[in-house]
Amino acid sequence: MAEDIKKIMFTVRKAPHGSIYVYEGLEVKLIMAAYDADISVVFMDDGVFALKDGQNTAELGIKGFAATYGVMVDYEISKIYVDRKSMEDRGMTENDLLVIGEDEDTEEPIKPTVIETDQIGPMMAEQHNILCF
C-alpha cells in the first residue's frame, strides 16, 4: 500500500495577512493531513512571513492563525520547508522562525526546515499534486 500513498505539496507564496488565501490554505492542509496522503509544505516568496515568530494580529482586528502553525506536527504535518533565499531577501533569518511542534520523544522544539531554492524543483517533480495556497 505504501507506494499508493499520494504525495501532495502545498506552496505558500503570499503574505499571511492582507488577504484570506494563506489562512484558508491552512484549513486545506489540516483536512488533507487527515487523509492517507504524504503532505509537505514549502513557504517561499512573501509566504515566508507566515512562519515569522511573534505575530500579533490584535490591531488588525482579525483572529490570526499563527498559533495553528505551532501545532502542525500534532496534525502530522512535519515536512515544512522554507526557502532560504526568500527569507534573506526579506531580512529574515532562521532565528525568526516560529516553532511548529515538539519532538515526541525528546520534547525538543521543531522548526521548519530551511532549504535552498534549487532543492525545490526536484521535490516538486516527485509530487502527485501541487496546491498553491
Partner: peptide, 17 residues
C-alpha cells in the same frame, strides 16, 4: 467539505488550479 477536494486530488491524474 474539503475532503471532497482531497479525494479529487488523490483520484485524478492531474489537479489543475
Amino acid at each position: 467539505g474539503l475532503g471532497q477536494l482531497t479525494m479529487m486530488a488523490i483520484e485524478a491524474d492531474r489537479l489543475v488550479t
